[in-house]
Nucleic acid binder design. Sequence first.
DNA 1: TTGTAAGCGTTATCAC
DNA 2: GTGATAACGCTTACAA
Lengths: 329, 329
Amino acid sequence: MATIKDVANQAGVSVATVSRVLNENGYVHEDTRRKVEEAIRQLNYSPNEVARSLYKKKSKLIGLLLPDITNPYFPQLARGVEDRLQENEYRLIFGNSDESRQKEMDYIQTFVQNNVVGVISSTNDPDADIYAGLKIPVVFLDRTSNDSPSVYADGREGGRLAAREMAKRGSKRITVMQGPVSVRPAMDRFEGAVEVLKELGVPFDVLKTTSFSFTEAEGWAKELFRQYPDTDGVIASNDIVASAVLQEAFRLGKRVPEDIQIVGFDDIPLSRLLTPSLSTIHQPAYEMGREAAGLLMQLIEGSHVEHKIIQYSVQFIERQTTRKVDYDG
Amino acid sequence: MATIKDVANQAGVSVATVSRVLNENGYVHEDTRRKVEEAIRQLNYSPNEVARSLYKKKSKLIGLLLPDITNPYFPQLARGVEDRLQENEYRLIFGNSDESRQKEMDYIQTFVQNNVVGVISSTNDPDADIYAGLKIPVVFLDRTSNDSPSVYADGREGGRLAAREMAKRGSKRITVMQGPVSVRPAMDRFEGAVEVLKELGVPFDVLKTTSFSFTEAEGWAKELFRQYPDTDGVIASNDIVASAVLQEAFRLGKRVPEDIQIVGFDDIPLSRLLTPSLSTIHQPAYEMGREAAGLLMQLIEGSHVEHKIIQYSVQFIERQTTRKVDYDG
DNA sequence: TTGTAAGCGTTATCAC
DNA sequence: GTGATAACGCTTACAA
């Protein structure tokens, strides 16, 4: 690979001059600029970001930490982040934490070791020391904490919405699936749902689950119907689990939504391709990713940031796993 | 952040000594080692990877280029890659190419600028100059080309399998969905299917599609039944499209698999959660990702590499969108 | 066994 | 306008 020195030689100038044309600062005569640019072209030179980073103590790298990209909700967040970042030439060092504290710390450490200028994280513990001690901006995505910059969706309201829509559509014996307690959005949803159900006086049961994994989803679904065989409405902890419940309901010969209604969470792309298509609570994942990236870049570039905590509202997407209502309320 | 110099001061030794204990090379007295380690601990020091990378012209970073992580097949590849790499402390700079040549080149360039030691790419054009010109090892994943190192699945055989199983189960008027022509595995599947269908003399039609996107999948499905309303078997180009076809079939009142059989490709996690669950051609995506990472690391570490091209075999997963056969053949 | 110093490819300061 | 040169944090000859 050609270095700035090679370019300088080729153009018959000093490295300082080359650096000036590269960074478009300082004076440089039009003729020399042309010579330099020509040399750059000839040598197909492009600057070594590592050397830059070392000197400036700043890179064009950003660390992204997600729980598990294998859960279809996260790729959308990731794409939003990436697309927005890419517009400003930032690149991503990416890692999955699997909700493991250790992995999370390891990744954060290598982010720092590689001079990343900012971090976007969907951690379960935004208040952990690792984050507090960071000297670079951090934006929490799909998570929130006190007044740290964060972008997230209103899970609690999502839970309320789900419960309200179920009740409105006549479910009388609802089962609320409670996601992992350590995952904040999961708890928010759960609490929101319970809040409304109590308020409305609708009887309900709770099924605790401890993961969102595909493999376990089927297990939760079976467990659900084993424990509550005559539930007529399920508020699932996310769309994956909802899909498993839907499938299990069919296996048991129940009609959806006639015998049992189901609502999911997230609105992952596949939920509309199910049959019946899945009613769910929509979160604008892609947009949230973009927003987090935008916020982070503002923080990095030091401009004054107005709203450091951005809450997106969620939306009930009526599809076919819930019944129709022809009145309003 | 503390530097090696701080550690040296704190321990009352030179930076060279610190470096020696860090890298466990050269002689260092047990007592000094202890002093240094103590200083490291006290200062919570961890070496600057950027400086290392600059000096050694080698980082612990690897570039991963995937078409679109939003397609549920790719996260599995990505996880395989990441998990394997992580065992050896390599980290990932990650990008989505969207099958765009420009984006691809941009990413490859920044990979190089950041001193990555290797690249894993699912490009549509492994023979492009960008790759040929790279001075670092490249492994093609889910793709292959001549004798460049690659890890991929036998798409052609997948296509044959799909066709054979459809025919065996009695579909008489098959529609083969042809994926994007620029995507090699898609073409392989297609050709494999056509090969067998011709061989067997089963009449078939072809529906050309140009993407794997969720949003367009529904369009292809509608188009399929518009053009070939009485097809009784669909070989879809992947599971996403297959799901859309399944849904559309229901909408049109067709019974699956009685009236029409459907086979997908990839075996993404959600395919088994559909109802009826989707029969499909399984590719060991996670394993392939791991393998690609392992191969790349061998290449990086310069050890002799035996089989540079690794083809995985695929497998027909019989689920509920195909009929049962109680004889064999 | 340990220290000194050169060098990795940049940028920025300061002369000229 | 342009060119030396120090500095960024590390590793590795080479000396001691």
